[in-house]
Simulated assay, not measured.
Amino acid sequence: MTIDNNTGSVITLDEAIGYTHTFQGNNPDAIKSFFAGINKINRILGQDDCIGIRFYNGEDPVTGKNNLVLVGVDKDGEDITQGVILERLTVCPTHCPKNSVLIKP
């Protein structure tokens, strides 16, 4: 499978609910979601030759808390590691949406 600036699939809300509720049911103590602000996302996407973002699972070596590492990707599918790399995203819990159907009740 190749990657390009159109990689990924748009899914329905029902599919999204199925994925998130299944994960949350199987992993009740796990982080439910991560949030990154638009300005930070745009800094990654605005880099020369950037066609998208790769999301890495990460863990803080000091606190042991999970998070995501976001890095731009170029047209060859390589990480843009000399550019903007984003981490320390806001997580749910504790900053959760109040009315999202993607959070399992």
Rank of each mutant, 00 (worst) to 15 (best):
N99L: 11
Q47D: 05
A36E: 15
H95N: 12
R88W: 09
D76L: 08
G25E: 12
I3S: 06
Q24N: 04
E87W: 06
G18S: 15
G8N: 05
K104L: 15
N6I: 09
T81L: 14
G37V: 02
R54Y: 14
I53Q: 04
I103D: 07
Y19G: 02
G18V: 05
A16M: 08
V91S: 12
N39K: 10
Q82K: 07
N5H: 05
L68E: 09
K104Y: 12
N66G: 02
A30N: 12
R54E: 15
D48N: 13
I51L: 07
N6Q: 14
I31N: 14
N26Y: 00
I85S: 07
N99P: 00
G18D: 14
N5L: 01
N6H: 15
N26D: 14
N6W: 01
K98Y: 06
D60I: 08
D48Q: 12
N26K: 12
Q47I: 05
D76H: 14
K65E: 14
N57M: 08
T22H: 03
Y56T: 02
V91E: 13
L13T: 12
Q24E: 15
V10K: 11
I103M: 09
L102E: 10
N39Q: 12
D79A: 13
D76F: 08
V73P: 02
K98W: 06
I85G: 00
I51N: 02
L45N: 05
V10C: 02
V73L: 09
F23G: 09
V69N: 00
C50P: 02
T94Q: 12
S33P: 06
N39F: 05
A16F: 07
E15R: 08
E15L: 07
V71L: 03
G25M: 11
C96R: 01
V62F: 01
L68T: 09
T81A: 09
E78Q: 13
S100T: 06
V101Q: 12
D76E: 15
E78W: 04
T7L: 10
I38D: 10
T2H: 06
G52M: 03
V62P: 00
V69P: 03
V71R: 02
T81Y: 01
S33K: 04
Q47Y: 07
K75H: 08
T12V: 09
G72N: 01
A30E: 15
L45G: 03
T7R: 01
R88N: 14
G58E: 07
N57F: 13
R43D: 15
C96A: 06
P93W: 08
N66C: 01
G83I: 02
E78A: 11
G72F: 05
N39T: 11
D14F: 03
Y56P: 00
